[in-house]
């Protein structure tokens, strides 16, 4: 079996269609959208197109669960004992079981919300973060950054489920959220353990995590202000081994991502006007 499988070789059946990242980045509507009032940022039943926006987001989470399963499975297999101890692989195997269950929960949730599998395009940047050849980087990028994002998304969607009175959404999010806290904690624990005697490696891994965190703050998608649809959840992050300083740093990274996005919109508008 091949080690270090690239994202281009992920197996999918005919229902799935992959999005090209460049199509999303260079979509000419992006600059215009930045100037529009699209209603409250936070998910709520009275937000314009609330149902379709939540369906689309939850489908993104579903394909993210598939990729998280693939990434954790790869970490069990890609590394030798000296690079990744057996106990780490055991944690990753447990995560595979959790991610499989999340896929099944997501499929049933999709049925409930009216989404077909593969109906919306799939972006594979989560799996891309799981392709790093250093297991510590991989744990920082996937378990701490992306599973951390999952904590924020699940917590926000659970609140949305409670507010819209949807018991199915609320329970699904709550159950998945509980597992994500464990996954993030695994990342935090193994980061400390594997880099105990190598502060440079730890710093490089944390740098990689900052990069992933910034990319996945998606220009204001996540943050701590009212205008951010997904809220940073400090309570669950602290349960997962994040210090207050790390939460502060993440909030700052998210704020910077939002500012940069605003600057890019302003530049695009200026270019369009000239």
């Amino acid at each position: 079996m091949k080690k270090h499988l690239p994202e281009s070789e992920l197996a999918r059946d005919g229902r799935f269609r992959r999005n090209k990242i460049e199509d999303q980045i260079f979509d000419p509507r992006n600059a215009m959208l930045g100037t529009r009032n699209l209603g409250p940022a936070v998910m709520a039943a009275d937000r314009p197109a609330a149902a379709e926006r939540s369906r689309s987001l939850m489908h993104g989470i579903f394909v993210g669960e598939i990729q998280a399963l693939e990434g954790a499975g790869r970490t069990c297999f890609d590394f030798e004992q000296e690079e990744a101890p057996f106990a780490l692989k055991l944690d990753m195997a447990r995560q595979c079981w959790d991610e499989s269950r999340h896929c099944e929960i997501s499929v049933k949730l999709s049925d409930h919300m009216g989404t077909d599998i593969g109906e919306y395009g799939e972006s594979t940047f989560l799996y891309a973060a799981a392709c790093n050849t250093d297991p510590v980087m991989r744990l920082c990028g996937v378990n701490r950054a992306l599973e951390g994002l999952a904590i924020d998304v699940f917590s926000s969607m659970k609140t949305f489920g409670e507010q819209s009175g949807d018991p199915v959404l609320t329970f699904c999010e709550d159950w998945m959220l509980a597992d994500e806290v464990t996954h993030v904690k695994m990342g935090s624990d193994w980061l400390r353990k594997l880099t105990e005697d190598d502060p440079d490696r730890r710093e490089r891994a944390l740098d990689f995590q900052r990069t992933v965190d910034k990319v996945f703050s998606l220009g204001g998608f996540r943050g701590e202000q009212e205008e951010n649809p997904i809220q940073i959840t400090r309570k669950f992050r602290s349960l997962a081994g994040f210090s207050t300083e790390e939460c502060d740093e993440l909030a700052e990274v998210a704020r910077q991502a939002m500012e940069e996005s605003r600057a890019m919109v302003a530049m695009a508008q200026a270019a369009a006007a000239s």
């Binding site: 039943a45 609330a50 149902a51 379709e52 369906r55 049925d111 409930h112 919300m113 009216g114 989404t115 077909d116 819209s164 009175g165 949807d166 018991p167 199915v168």
Partner: peptide, 16 residues
């Protein structure tokens, strides 16, 4: 017309 989408949208405004 995707009926399950339509019922989900309806429930969101009329209750589950």
């Amino acid at each position: 017309v995707h009926q399950q989408k339509r019922i989900y949208d309806f429930r969101m405004q009329h209750g589950f």
